[in-house]
Design a protein around this nucleic acid. Sequence first.
DNA 1: TAGCGGACGATAATAATTATCCTTTACAAT
DNA 2: ATTGTAAAGGATAATTATTATCGTCCGCTA
Lengths: 145, 145
Amino acid sequence: MQSDETRSFRELCREHGIAMTHQRQVLYETMKTMHGHPSPEEVYARVKRKVPAISLATVYKNIHLFVESGVFRKMSMHHGSVRVEMNGEAHHHMVCSRCREITDIAEEDLGLTGRRGSLPGGFRVERYAVDVIGICAKCQSATGS
Amino acid sequence: MQSDETRSFRELCREHGIAMTHQRQVLYETMKTMHGHPSPEEVYARVKRKVPAISLATVYKNIHLFVESGVFRKMSMHHGSVRVEMNGEAHHHMVCSRCREITDIAEEDLGLTGRRGSLPGGFRVERYAVDVIGICAKCQSATGS
DNA sequence: TAGCGGACGATAATAATTATCCTTTACAAT
DNA sequence: ATTGTAAAGGATAATTATTATCGTCCGCTA
């Protein structure tokens, strides 16, 4: 007997040309429930609850695999470590230069219009990653500045 | 006797409230001559030619000090290590997702229009940091893809 | 279901950065 | 100019994040 989740994950793996394993499935489903920009260590801690014997190396290897095969997106990092993007919508980031907190902002709320097509030097554009650097509301009220 | 450079660096230090040392002066003047986004190791290698006894730790400590006190700007990193921005003009970055090379692009060449003022959540905007993710010309011709 | 290549787990190794600790220097007050 | 003190430098140990290695085991195709 095979659950719906397992069946669809098996298909997802096939689409992306990777083998389906128990660890990968738990990893994938755990990550899907996480919000924000989890670090490998945070993912590891969560997955360990379901698969206690899992190795941190496996978490790293599969996060990379997911990113390379396009299952998840790696975000441009302002944290000190690799982070994965759990928000599937087109969006960008507001980075507080004081407390380093990173908040998502929807692309339409940003009101940015970029030139599509090609850029100087024959660079082929895949996507834009915009970081808005500034001061978040919390830090503004904290110091009054 | 004191050279003009030394005199002005002494002033710079005073303005930023930091002590003036020989190592700091050489570090500062060396970095000013470097282009692109040098890594601490690269800066270290260069400075070593002038001050062979300098320690890598000193380079790190002072790069941080320069960034914190506003002498130089830290760039959002897509390299694996901390980089300092040596281009004073308003510009953004094109990041090759294949070879990781980062090239500057002038703000006007990017042709983006941003909404100034405040964003959702009361976030006060200081500046935008745009990374254009894509494939550079070299990697395009290398694989033909 | 057999066989093989890839995946897993444990852990060593590496890279980047930071902390420690002792010596030396810069700077302000004398 | 002299000196006291806090900060800076140098050497290196420690830490953190990540990757490589390697023997064993499992998923997938024939």
